[in-house]
Design a protein around this nucleic acid. Structure first.
Lengths: 138, 138
DNA sequence: TTAGATTCTGGAGTGCACTCAATGTCAAGG
DNA sequence: CCTTGACATTGAGTGCACTCCAGAATCTAA
């Protein structure tokens, strides 16, 4: 605020639409301490622009297959401030390594499927031959 | 059997060890009709060598992220015989396409993490500068 | 002012993929 | 014959990540 950024805030409904996550899920994430918004005078959740970025990051991490437990740990570090940056970096590096491993595994699965597909084509081919033999023996 | 392969059969305990899947999970898979072994005179499950191959294939599909529902459909086709080969091929191709898509997505996640890691290094760098300024002003 | 919309909380329910527990059957070995 | 061990069934329980519901409070617009 001291830097003059106009601080906009959003109610849960509006925020839900912006980040495309259901209201119930947002409240669930809050229970899990992934994102803990401020409250206004009448106890309603008040999300900020920063929360939008944070939630999009969470969505990313989720899509990389990171379980909520881990994201939660990341969130905890984040809410603790700058002195946890190294720890957060470590988490990010770990996840990156995991994804690299996933990449390799994925390739082996694709190769496997290709092999399987090939054998099926073989089987089809053999069945075809079978049929033509039957046909010629009539 | 006409081709002279010695047909060995395994009880559920032995089979469980061979394929490295718990007995409970095997029974669960049977309930879901993924793998339906014969029974002996006293109603015990009797798995074959073919079942070992089939189960290893199931494990593969599972690892590629295919849900049990889909594998179940594949299993149903398989138990129906040769005339379902085209349909099974289609399933395999679909899954292959999914994996290709996963591969691309995975790459974007990795890129994203790299970018995030980079910004963290920037932040660290800035904090460092901050500190040295503070130090020199003393 | 008042109806309707939005939000609040606590708690129950869902779907998936197992996992475990209780109770029962059966063939083989001492 | 009787115990033991592997197997059988049914049904309940677990963990994850939501998703839904009831009842109450608060906000907004006519």
């Amino acid at each position: 605020m001291s830097r003059g950024q106009l601080k906009v805030s959003y109610g849960i409904g509006e925020f839900s639409k912006i980040v495309d996550i259901s209201i119930d899920t947002l409240r669930y994430y809050e229970k899990e301490k992934l994102i803990v918004p401020e409250r206004d005078k009448s106890n309603r959740r008040s999300y900020t622009d920063r929360d939008i970025k944070w939630l999009n990051f969470i969505k990313r991490l989720k899509k990389t297959g990171m379980p909520i437990k881990n994201i939660k740990y990341y969130a905890k570090l984040r809410y603790q401030g700058d002195e946890t940056i190294d720890e957060r970096l470590k988490l990010l590096y770990d996840q990156r390594h995991r994804l690299e491993a996933d990449q390799i595994e994925l390739q082996t699965h694709i190769n496997f499927l290709d092999a399987k597909i090939e054998t099926y084509h073989q089987i089809k081919h053999n069945l075809q031959k079978q049929k033509s033999i039957e046909a010629s023996s009539n």
